[in-house]
Design a protein around this nucleic acid. Sequence first.
DNA 1: GATGAATGAGTATTCATTCAT
DNA 2: TATGAATGAATACTCATTCAT
Lengths: 211, 211, 211, 211
Amino acid sequence: MGIQERKEREKERRRQQIMVAAKRVFSSKGFNKATMEDIAREAELSPGTLYLYFMNKDELYASLSLRILHYLKIRLEHVVQEKGLTPEQRITALQSALYDVYEFDPLILINMFHLQSSETLSNLSAELSTEIQRLSRSALRNIVKIFKDGIAQDAFIDEHPVAMADITWSLFSGVVLWETSKKLLNPKNDYLKTTLETAFKILRRGVRKSV
Amino acid sequence: MGIQERKEREKERRRQQIMVAAKRVFSSKGFNKATMEDIAREAELSPGTLYLYFMNKDELYASLSLRILHYLKIRLEHVVQEKGLTPEQRITALQSALYDVYEFDPLILINMFHLQSSETLSNLSAELSTEIQRLSRSALRNIVKIFKDGIAQDAFIDEHPVAMADITWSLFSGVVLWETSKKLLNPKNDYLKTTLETAFKILRRGVRKSV
Amino acid sequence: MGIQERKEREKERRRQQIMVAAKRVFSSKGFNKATMEDIAREAELSPGTLYLYFMNKDELYASLSLRILHYLKIRLEHVVQEKGLTPEQRITALQSALYDVYEFDPLILINMFHLQSSETLSNLSAELSTEIQRLSRSALRNIVKIFKDGIAQDAFIDEHPVAMADITWSLFSGVVLWETSKKLLNPKNDYLKTTLETAFKILRRGVRKSV
Amino acid sequence: MGIQERKEREKERRRQQIMVAAKRVFSSKGFNKATMEDIAREAELSPGTLYLYFMNKDELYASLSLRILHYLKIRLEHVVQEKGLTPEQRITALQSALYDVYEFDPLILINMFHLQSSETLSNLSAELSTEIQRLSRSALRNIVKIFKDGIAQDAFIDEHPVAMADITWSLFSGVVLWETSKKLLNPKNDYLKTTLETAFKILRRGVRKSV
DNA sequence: GATGAATGAGTATTCATTCAT
DNA sequence: TATGAATGAATACTCATTCAT
């Protein structure tokens, strides 16, 4: 391992350390109320150091989304590559993958949904912004593939598969947002998992080609 | 018309004037970047005057959500009261009502979805917060009714109708958020309406009781 | 009674109404935290009306001092005019008069002490400012007289009587301020009356010409 | 000197720098009209920096009182510890100590008297508020001791020594307030020192046990 | 006279970011 | 690299005062 590479690794480790701290702080205080000093304290670093690894607060925030998008990408690739599944089984696998993504980092996922249509995108470096879009697209493409295959195998109705992927993703994020908000107001309300199951059950029935 | 009533009306007109201005400013700048002074300027009033009609920035913001929730409530009541519709037709009517709500005020609707799982709820006056919840619940109850009736008439599968209502609402908000965010990144992407149609088509098929 | 005079009286009555309200509000909130609207509400008038009777907040505040200074003036005149008192008895009568002034309006008296060396004097109308000084001087002159007489009758030591009057007034206001502040911190501490008695006892002994 | 200690010193120096500036500004403009920006400018610092050393405006203000109370405490300890003084000489030493305190910082002392019965106490940190009370009490206790000793030595009349200490302190603060306010109105009036001397002369005579 | 809605100048405080060490 | 003290721009909110009715 060259010295260059070692440095690279060390730098990456630091980035991770900061992101872990940022995740905790953003999750508990929300983006606006979380201060850079909060994050620095949580990471046991000084505020100045954060700026050696991230251009600004927005970019630090966005990098968290990146992390979960990475995980999403990988999980969806697995779903598509899994062998021997019927199209409907593959949707079930997709559902399960999405739920894993939710569990990987529930609060960041929700923040990410916020980020998507928000005021923050303009502050990001072009690089980061591109990367986020690349990952999102890759994820969506894999979902599209599931529907395409289903249609090709005459298992699914012949709707536009891109739209069907969008709908699936919308359904997932909508349920997560809505159930989370209900739970915020009333912590006893924890039906996310069963609601998600019912949602996908309806989805599967809705796209299934009846004979 | 008594003098009391006239004043009441005048006051309500002022509130509307401010809300219209606030809507424009919040829509174009987002909540955080919009300043009270921006809104005052847009409303051709002084900053102080805003505080005669709204306790603080959060409350002004939330009152915009209230307005659209009122509209939602009324629209959904109509859907439920409409005579002579089959359960599936009623879902179609629901879809169309929801789309109207979206058109009534697209940006505020989206902001409201954001608001739901956000940091802002604590600053609201108890009164306003209660009102928001009351309207949301009333809206949901009407959607539940559609599914209950459908099940009672043996037209829909026998899933928990509350969950089905949640899913419908999630589907709607998810599609609106997702399509809007795609459109933000690429303004040519305007598939919201058709995506929503496909989504509800799948939904109707998904809940339909096959013979 | 001419119409002019009736108007004059009506106006004076209104001023009193406002001053009573102002006294309550200033006493409970202090000068800075009391708003003109608070006072208007307490007086069951509109804010604008206050400005028909008082030039501004400072002047309204100062007029309260005026009221207590009037009372002080009258009380001290009585002390000096009372017949057949020895010089020491007259100091006792003075003490009792001052205590009455304190009771006439405890909080305003304290506020008045504040006013005297404060930032507020410049805003007052020349008229009001002059009046306040006129009354203060008249009060002090009467105290001076007591000491002058005592010296003339060879009952008091031959110190500068103006200084002795200043000291008496200082002693009174100092005790009131100090005991009040102690009572603020610990409401059970209510020794003002007895402390004042001891103070004047010492004063009498201090100025008495020993044989 | 450790690095820790050096930092501590540097920090204390900064606090002093700010307090010196604050004193100037508060003295010339009064509490309400002095802005934090004024003070920052006077201290040649930015407004934000002030908040690194003081929680808020009230606390900065109160810290000035603290400074003079420290001085008072030390001066009174000396008076009590001084050897070989008769009780009356000790009162004279007390008078001279109090006058030193006045000269140490005339305007802040006066502000402190104002503060005592004012609206400001609630905003202070518990810590600061406690410290102020602790110092005040310590000061008073030493004055009490002088009178107790005088009584014990049969030099002073047998009045309650706590009351006598309160009266002494009241006399001092009353004279300072009153003479200062007279001087404000008429700058030629500068009799504070002689009035204070007369006041203490009367006090000494008043508490002296005549044979 | 009386009103009270509207004004708008005024300010304490926060916090992302920088930069000398 | 890392620090953390210093920065200073930015802003929600208040309230004495005015003036059209």
